[in-house]
Every structure is written in C-alpha cells, then in structure tokens.
C-alpha cells in the first residue's frame, strides 16, 4: 500500500502542497499529469530523495516519512533508467541482493528467476551500454524488483520506446504486477498508458492531486 497524507514539497521555485493519495496493496496505481506538474518530484519524495515540508508517507503499513532512502524497501525505476554503466546485466539484477548479503546460490537462483520473468536470460553477461530501449527497461525493472520490494515506483517507464516495444512492455508490467503482487505507482503523461494499466488512476493538475474513476469521472 502507498499512502500520502497532506504531503507538501518545495524544490527551488517549485512547490506542491496538501497532496494525498492511496494505492491499496497489490494494485496498479497510475499518476497522470502534464510535464512539469510535479509527478517526478512526488515520486522522489516517496523514495526519500526529497525532503517533505510537511505530511506523511506510509508504505506497506510502515510510516517511512523520516526513514532513510535505503530503509524504505522500494523499487524505483527513474525515467532515464540510470543503469550502472560499469556493470553487467547480471550484476544489476544481483545488486540489491549483494547489498543485503544474500548468499551466492540464493543470488544465483533469484537472478535466474528474474531473468526468465523479464526474458533477458541471453543478456545476463552483457554490459548495459549498448542495450536497446526495451532491454534496458527490463534490466532496470529487474534491478528494482530483485529484493522483492513491497512498492514499485516507475517514472515514465514507456516513454522513449517504439510502439511495438511499448505494447510488449505494457503486457510485461501487467504480468509483473500479477505475478509479484507488488503495489505499483506508475507516473506518466499519457492517457493511453493510464487507460491500459491503471487500477487506480490519479491526476496531478495545477498542484491538485485527485483520484479519478476509470471512466474519467472525478472519484473523490
């Protein structure tokens, strides 16, 4: 579950105030808004990368408002994916597990399992610099999912992909959510993406965050 209560954030000249949102556990939440509306800032605040001016953030029943980024137990895929250029695909998938000091065989089986789920097994020993957009996105997803986070935060995961890859990725995102039961918050400016994926739909417009019913009506 992802719950924001009266969250206010200031980042330089940009500020949003009094934002509240709740994605129930295991649901696919989509947050829609124009470029510059503060979607990414909000996602960063949930990650703990931005300090809140006020308000409270609860993830999976835990109040994480004052917790450090590392303690929040999230998976985060930023818009540019931010893969680690010095590591192989395998090292990406193993990264969070190495940090958590899993043993070698547990890491190996988790990496194999993730690679199968994301269909990137043939890429495991490759570097990430020359991957295609879709491949890079799968690696970023695998890296974020490896430690079985309760919450997965995706920033414009389908932008900069061609039409066919976008359609494949949409199916993949849906199947990941069904298989893992992770609570997701997907930020996008595309109404089409929202329509195809959202179980809970939110819009951020002119500093106001609202939940909408999936037929486009304001739900509350």
């Amino acid at each position: 579950m992802i719950r924001l209560e009266n969250v206010s954030i200031r980042a330089g000249a940009f500020a949003v105030a009094g934002l509240s949102l709740e994605v129930p556990a295991g649901r696919y939440g989509v947050l829609m808004g124009q470029t510059g509306s503060g979607k990414t800032t909000l996602l960063e605040a949930i990650c703990g990368l931005r300090r809140l001016q006020s308000g409270r953030i609860t993830l999976g029943g835990r109040d994480v408002t004052t917790l450090k980024v590392a303690q929040r137990g999230i998976g985060y895929v930023p818009q540019d994916r931010a893969l680690f250029p010095t590591m192989t695909v395998r090292e990406h998938l193993a990264f969070a597990l190495t940090i958590r000091m899993w043993n070698r065989s547990a890491i190996h089986s988790r990496v194999t399992e993730l690679a199968q789920m994301l269909a990137i097994t043939p890429l495991l020993d490759r570097g990430v610099v020359n991957l295609s957009g879709g491949e890079a996105q799968r690696v970023a997803l695998g890296r974020a999912l490896a430690h079985r986070p309760e919450v997965l935060l995706l920033d414009e995961p389908l932008s900069a992909l061609d039409e066919e890859t976008r359609s494949q990725m949409t199916d993949l995102l849906r199947s990941i959510q069904q298989e893992t039961g992770v609570t997701m918050l997907h930020v996008t400016h595309s109404a089409r993406e929202a329509e195809r994926l959202a179980q809970n739909l939110f819009t951020l417009e002119a500093g106001h965050l609202r939940e909408r019913s999936l037929t486009g009506e304001v739900a509350g």
Partner: peptide, 22 residues
C-alpha cells in the same frame, strides 16, 4: 548521472556503499 547514485540508495545502499560501488 546523479540518478545512478540515487537508484543505488533506493536499492539499499548507504551513501558510502553507493559511492564505492556505483
């Protein structure tokens, strides 16, 4: 890219781990 370091933090790294590993 500062994002790489931020992603490492979200994956459970401390600042020093993110620095040395990423």
């Amino acid at each position: 890219n500062p994002r790489s370091e931020q992603v490492a933090l979200t994956l459970g790294c401390s600042r020093s781990q993110a620095f040395f590993m990423v």
